[in-house]
Design a binder for these strands. Structure first.
Lengths: 152, 152
DNA sequence: CGAAAGCGCACCATATTGGTGCTGTATCCG
DNA sequence: CGGATACAGCACCAATATGGTGCGCTTTCG
């Protein structure tokens, strides 16, 4: 499906919340009191984000997480890529682009795939939209976001 | 995952092929000889597209499918929506936008969901990209597609 | 008539997703 | 010191989505 996973959704919500408290250490408990999210899963996601260096963790009582970088420097695309890999719309995209010339795993349709090129364009556009939106944008959610892409 | 399903992928390939043979009736067999696709599944997808009025079917020997409308008038968005529903990135999006005020099924985060608005923007942008790309665009796959969206 | 091709409906194996259990370790505070 | 709080790691599970198949029926061409 053309949809973000819950993990990604929770991750974005958590990171956005962290963005509103830059510098502070926020516990998973606080996050789950602010929004009705499954605590354990959110913790799991934060752990992943920590491993990937997007957040810093502090252990022990009064511990928690904090953004590792300024909110404006973390794009939604980075978060998505971290939590569910690069968006690649079609399978030949992912195989073609990332496995490249490996004997196994190359898109069987290869050069005669009739939709490869335009779909690639769409994917690139989607990706650049995600890249162009930062956590800071999400944080001030009344602001118009990526309006450039809406102007047609 | 932020990815189209195989069904959608096959559907786009099939429709694009049909676009190159406007007016003619093309059998599933021909499609699967042109590209290495699982025949039965492609047939299943074409059936769905037929029910939704995107293609016309002709039964009997020398039967097959043909585009019901000019390729330029069928957007990728329409195909995606037909085969896997509207792209809605987040679950609160889909619940919020389509179930609206129903007692059950409303996004629990509702108004305090911190990422709703910007994600909605992204979704709208994605959607308009899909809408702006037609089967005719896919058919002539060397053409630049939706470059407007790449200009940032 | 018989082969080709679509129609309908059900069914299945696997992968992904969303979520939980449990144990361990670090840190704060009284 | 000792408990309470909170992250770390690992494994596991149920539900759902996905990709794909079986099979018999109907329609049409030659």
């Amino acid at each position: 499906m053309l949809q973000l996973t819950k993990r990604t959704e929770y991750g974005l919500i958590a990171l956005t919340h962290l963005a509103t408290r830059a510098g502070e250490v926020v516990s998973v408990r606080e996050l789950c009191e602010a929004y009705p999210l499954p605590k354990r899963l959110v913790a799991e996601v934060l752990k992943d984000l920590c491993r990937e260096g997007l957040v810093d963790s502090t252990r022990g009582a009064s511990g928690g997480y904090a953004l590792a970088r300024p909110a404006a420097e973390v794009s939604v695309g980075t978060v998505v890529a971290t939590l569910e890999g690069h968006p690649s719309l079609t399978s030949c995209e992912s195989l073609g682009a990332y496995v490249a010339n490996a004997t196994r795993g190359v898109c069987e349709l290869e050069s005669n795939c009739p939709i490869k090129s335009p779909i690639h364009q769409l994917r690139a556009s989607l990706w650049s939209m995600l890249e162009a939106t930062s956590l800071a944008d999400l944080a001030q959610h009344d602001r118009a976001v990526s309006t450039a892409f809406l102007s047609r």
